[in-house]
Design a protein around this nucleic acid. Structure first.
Lengths: 220, 220
DNA sequence: ATATAGTGTGTATTTCTTACACTATTAAAT
DNA sequence: ATTTAATAGTGTAAGAAATACACACTATAT
């Protein structure tokens, strides 16, 4: 009637034109030396939401990030200690925000590292399945959430935005149609500035207008 | 690090033109005499999927029904015994299939009863929230799942099908547009038979062609 | 000056969505 | 036999949204 209870985090980011996933290298039994999703046991009488915050913080140094629940994954045979139930959560973080904060080591993991989503190593436990389900969900919700904007810096170009979409859905999109759709949605704010330091025509910068987005969501 | 682990079931059906939810009346502390989702503790080292099957069977007499996971709901304060984590599952059953099988009583519940979704009593624990999330998900997935067809008898009329849609999304639909869309989708099989025993023009009967549905899903 | 690499834009076509009203069929009542 | 009540069944036009598609512009490096 009782079970071990862990949290696993699916943490996405975007860098070098690719969707990236944060993994940790385990330094303890079981699955010692395997890569796994950042995750750990909850503490006695700890609220699930608090556990998620704590574990996220311990792995990324990030606070106050909303994590969405993906679901529960349980298995009697997953772990020698008996049944373990893990609740997986996912979030998306800006690459620049975390890259300096990732802790290189804790007592149970040797290192944390970003992997492009299409070059993942074999994963411990049933984590490959968790990642797969999470990705599927991300593809579905991409258009109704602020997810993509979490992946970009505050000011971004339309090409960058398009790259994020393409990285997530795994298809290329027509530039003109993409821009038309974005313009139509109407929750980007065009900035007076342009890109700097590029050796070609500098692109206009935009930022995401959360208020307009919320308003439009209400209409649907 | 350990927690109590329960399963709760959101079981829908369709009767008298309304979406119905199966609830049980608790006969034990806590929330004695309250209505609650059918649910119970998992057993030691029982796989989650097995627990779901068992609990569904104990409450409805149904076997071999696929239940979809809604998510985990945890709370330290939910129960005097400390933290309880419940994983909610939902399913949809044909009303005729279960109405005779519902067990009237177990050691911890006095009775089970169907309630129209818009006339639910106050619910125990955080079950109102679970139902709310479940409903929201059902509305979203209605078009991409076989859910509605689970609510209907094998042979059904287009009007019945439309009523199910309307009951779930909570809006009325235009008859012609609805039929156009259904025809377009193309996974209904028109039967040579018509309705019987009605005192007005008998409607054509259809049945759901699972194979065609699967094929089309693959394309998206 | 020119090569490079990415930015930025318009239009025609098709597909999907929505709004809307009458005739056909059947059983029951008269 | 006729009427009534109840539901089944059907098409079209207008507007909105999605798609397919090609070329000129500009900042920089050499």
């Amino acid at each position: 009637m009782q079970t071990h209870f862990t949290i696993d985090c699916v943490i996405y980011s975007f860098n070098e034109g690719k969707l990236q996933l944060l993994l940790t290298e385990r330094s303890v039994y079981p699955y010692k030396d395997w890569w796994a999703l950042p995750g750990f046991f909850t503490q006695k009488d700890e609220e699930m939401e608090d556990a998620v915050k704590r574990i996220l913080y311990e792995h990324t140094g990030l606070k106050d990030i909303f994590m969405e629940q993906l679901g529960a994954f349980a298995g009697v045979k997953r772990h020698p200690e008996g049944r373990i139930l893990t609740v997986a959560f996912s979030t998306i973080v800006k690459y620049e925000d975390v890259k300096s904060k990732i802790k290189p080591m804790t007592s149970y993991m040797r290192q944390a590292k970003w992997f492009p989503i299409d070059q993942l190593p074999d994963l411990a436990f049933d984590h490959a399945r968790i990642v797969q389900e999470s990705l599927q969900k991300l593809k579905h919700t991409i258009n109704y959430s602020t997810a993509v904007y979490e992946l970009l810096p505050e000011k971004f170009t339309l090409t960058q935005l398009q790259q994020v979409y393409e990285a997530i859905i795994g298809k290329t999109l027509d530039k003109r149609n993409f821009r038309k759709k974005i313009a139509n949605a109407g929750f980007l704010k065009e900035l007076p500035e342009v890109q700097k330091g590029v050796s070609y025509r500098a692109a206009r910068l935009y930022k995401f207008d959360k208020r307009k987005f919320q308003k439009q969501l209400g209409m649907m």
